[in-house]
Computed example of a mutant assay.
Amino acid sequence: MLRIGLTGGMGAGKSTVARALGDLGAVIIDSDLIAREVVAPGTEGLAALVEAFGADILAADGSLDRPALAAKAFGDDAARAKLNSITHPLVGKRTAKLIADVPSDSIVVQDIPLLVENGLAPLMNLVLIVDVDVETRIRRLVEFRGVVEADARARISAQATDEQRRAVADVLLDNSGAPGEVETEVRTLWARRLLPFERNLRTGTPARRTDVRILPPNPDWPAQAQRLIARLWVACGATASRIDHIGSTSVPGLVAKDVIDLQITVADLAAADSLRDALGAAGFPVRPECTQDNPKPTPQDPAGADTALWTKRFHQNADPGRLADVHVRAAGSPGQQYALLLRDWLRADAAARADYVAVKREGAAKAAGLTGAEAAAAYLAVKEPWFDAAYPRALAWWGR
């Protein structure tokens, strides 16, 4: 199923977005609500808190007196750690149960106030951040919730910063406009991205463009790559030895197709095959028909005849809003080494970058008006000869 992480600063209007997504059909899992449920009267959570912090954290009716608990639990790091050691596993267990119970074709939205603070973004297929500037949030808290301004500022300062949230955001939902605007934005997101993403994820279908478009450099490409890499590390675990941003979008200032290229380095192709299901579940289904890089003459194979040296596994992102190609290659293989070498050479050599830009533009011109396999073939027919000729140049640069 598609797992969406939803968060935003206090006063940003996260509940408004959650409600809009729920109305569209998403299954909403509210972490705040779960946190209250697991310490309700009669639960093991409340009993554990009383044992740890004393019976005076209970109200007269036997429920948890939250201010009394806060006075004890937030006084020092050890007490806070004790509180978290009790509540976090219970919240995690309850959340896992709720997710397991929903249909497999669901879009699950986990409403988590501390998603960024607790490092949970890589566990999600997509992260939505409700984005509103701090001063607007403070004004809303004071005017609409009756929060004292000094208290609002103190509570906001204890949360992640806007910059930290934006760093993990796949989607920023601007909720600073007029009432109803963010709901319209959510409906568009649902129709154009979330529903297709869920369908692609469920059916193991990569998201792909049918034409070839070369775009100006996007300074956000490296940040987008890092968000995807964080998810890939969760899926791969110790099977991967490194995960790198490669390709044109990894070279500052280089024009490129709006597709993030990533390389997962593993010990061998058996390890690559072992990742197939985990990568698919993370949102990167395999392209089983793509198993080969174009061979180049190498020291191991001067004639370039042994294509087995250039074998790989290839996955693509299922998210139509962020196209990505994931190449899984064996450590030390020519393809694995060339991907890193080409990136580093292009970063360092302005003349090589200029050559490559000219080739990319020529390839895009050849592909203009074509779609699908025809467009890709026309584009590669121009690029691949340049790659062949560039290989010894890059090797010479590396050994200079």
Rank of each mutant, 00 (worst) to 15 (best):
P206T: 09
P206D: 12
P206K: 12
P206M: 10
A207M: 06
A207C: 06
A207L: 04
A207K: 12
A207V: 03
A207I: 02
R208F: 00
R208K: 13
R208N: 02
R209G: 00
R209T: 08
T210A: 15
D211Y: 04
D211P: 05
V212I: 08
V212C: 02
I214Q: 08
I214D: 03
I214L: 10
I214W: 12
L215Q: 11
L215K: 08
L215E: 07
P217H: 02
P217N: 04
N218I: 03
N218T: 05
N218C: 05
P219E: 08
W221M: 00
W221T: 01
W221C: 00
W221R: 02
W221F: 01
P222H: 04
P222W: 01
A223F: 04
A223M: 07
Q224P: 02
Q224R: 15
A225T: 09
Q226M: 10
Q226I: 00
R227Q: 02
R227M: 10
R227P: 07
R227Y: 08
R227N: 07
R227A: 07
L228S: 06
I229A: 03
I229V: 04
I229W: 00
I229F: 07
R231Y: 11
R231P: 10
R231H: 13
R231C: 09
L232P: 01
W233P: 00
W233T: 01
V234W: 14
V234L: 14
V234A: 15
V234S: 14
A235Q: 14
A235Y: 15
A235L: 13
A235E: 13
C236L: 15
C236I: 12
C236A: 15
G237S: 07
G237E: 12
A238F: 11
A238D: 15
A238I: 13
A240Y: 09
S241P: 13
R242K: 12
R242L: 08
R242C: 02
R242G: 09
I243K: 07
I243S: 03
I243M: 09
I243E: 04
D244R: 03
D244I: 09
D244E: 14
D244Y: 03
H245I: 08
H245Q: 08
H245K: 09
H245F: 09
I246C: 06
I246Y: 13
I246K: 15
I246S: 06
G247A: 14
G247D: 13
G247Y: 11
G247W: 11
G247P: 08
S248T: 03
T249E: 05
